[in-house]
């Protein structure tokens, strides 16, 4: 650990033995999540709390999860990436176009991931080295990636026989363990989760990212290569978006130039929900996981309860605001 203690300057707080506020702040969101689960369980006793349904939920949130986990890395540094949704769409189109030209799955996957890394490099370079704000940069690249997806595809959806069967089947199949099947997409998301957790929480690289997010100037003075690390964080989110785009194309066995666009806002919401669970209000990938699960469980449960889809949206937004409000109120109570 080369980061000195001055980083993340924060007056030492007196530790209290037990405080409802502290407890609420850290566990409030988790409790909220458990209450939501309890309500759905009680309302749909036979169908909600089943292995099949939970495996479905993990598969349904797997793509959002990959985007949100890697978005966490960028948000740890104090930036964010608005371009992940259209990047996911673009990568799906790149893969689909390669399939149309009879390229094998491996080529499409590698090309897709490379495109994601390249997009991340561009974002990172503009933010970190040129010094444009992350908001403006990624707003611009978001529009560019979306435009490229539409341009390459001519606005149409690529589907049908041109998509290799193996590619389409991957998103539907899974690891068979006796009577249950763990979806491939779930396993992939789990792998990204573990990898991101390890990088952020267990490596010097990760510690330095948190240091930059805590106090960029102090980190720089302490000898952390702030600019390079910020750039790398964007490469991670670009790669995550590309992986998500490939997963999405596989799950739908098709590529539509707009199919990933909606991922961005949900991913940011998931990271914010997760941030309410951290003592310092920092993003942590396990918190993001809870955020992703809250969004996924809400969509699943409310659908099973026959709740109107517009009301679902209103409820979901309300719950996000409620969680963040509770967390910030309890912090102010200190």
């Amino acid at each position: 650990m080369s980061v000195p203690q001055t980083v993340g300057v924060r007056p030492a707080r007196k530790r209290r033995a037990f405080s409802v506020a502290r407890w609420l702040r850290t566990f409030g969101t988790l409790i909220g999540f458990l209450i939501i689960v309890a309500i759905f369980w009680q309302q749909r006793p036979t169908t909600f709390m089943t292995v099949t349904n939970w495996l479905n939920i993990t598969q349904q949130v797997s793509i959002l999860g990959v985007v949100a986990f890697t978005m966490t890395v960028v948000m740890v540094v104090g930036d964010f990436d608005l371009s992940v949704g259209t990047m996911a769409s673009l990568v799906g189109i790149i893969a689909g176009t390669l399939f149309q030209n009879e390229q094998p799955v491996a080529v499409a996957v590698v090309a897709g991931l490379l495109a994601g890394a390249l997009g991340g490099l561009i974002n990172g370079f503009l933010v970190s080295y040129v010094g444009i704000s992350a908001f403006v940069t990624t707003l611009g690249t978001m529009t560019i990636f979306g435009g490229l997806a539409l341009y390459i595809s001519g606005g149409t959806t690529i589907f049908g026989r041109v998509i290799p069967e193996a590619f389409g089947n991957f998103g539907r199949e899974g690891l068979v363990l006796g009577s249950i099947t763990i979806p491939n997409l779930t396993l992939l998301a789990l792998a990204v989760l573990v990898l991101t957790w390890f990088i952020l929480e267990q490596t010097v690289f990760g510690r330095r990212l948190y240091a930059i997010g805590g106090n960029r100037e102090a980190s720089r003075l302490a000898g952390v290569r702030v600019r390079f690390l910020r750039l790398l964080a964007f490469v991670v989110s670009g790669l995550g978006a590309a992986a998500a785009g490939l997963m999405l194309a596989s799950r739908l066995a098709s590529a539509n130039p707009k199919q990933g666009d909606g991922l961005m806002l949900n991913a940011i919401a998931a990271v914010f929900l997760g941030m309410t669970m951290s003592e310092e209000g920092e993003p942590h990938v396990l918190g993001t996981l809870v955020g992703v699960l809250i969004l996924g469980v809400l969509a699943n449960g409310l659908t099973q309860l026959n709740i109107d889809s517009y009301i679902q949206q209103i409820l979901t937004g309300g719950i996000i605001i409620l969680a963040v409000t509770l967390s910030s109120l309890s912090r102010r109570g200190q």
């Binding site: 479905n56 739908l252 909606g262 969509a299 699943n300 659908t303 099973q304 026959n306 889809s309």
Partner: peptide, 26 residues
Amino acid sequence: WTVNVIDTAGDVAALNSRLQDVVTQG
């Protein structure tokens, strides 16, 4: 009948997810 209208606002992936949910719901 009880009708549950689900609009995924242009999101075909979400439509697949919600289809799974109503199948689970039975």
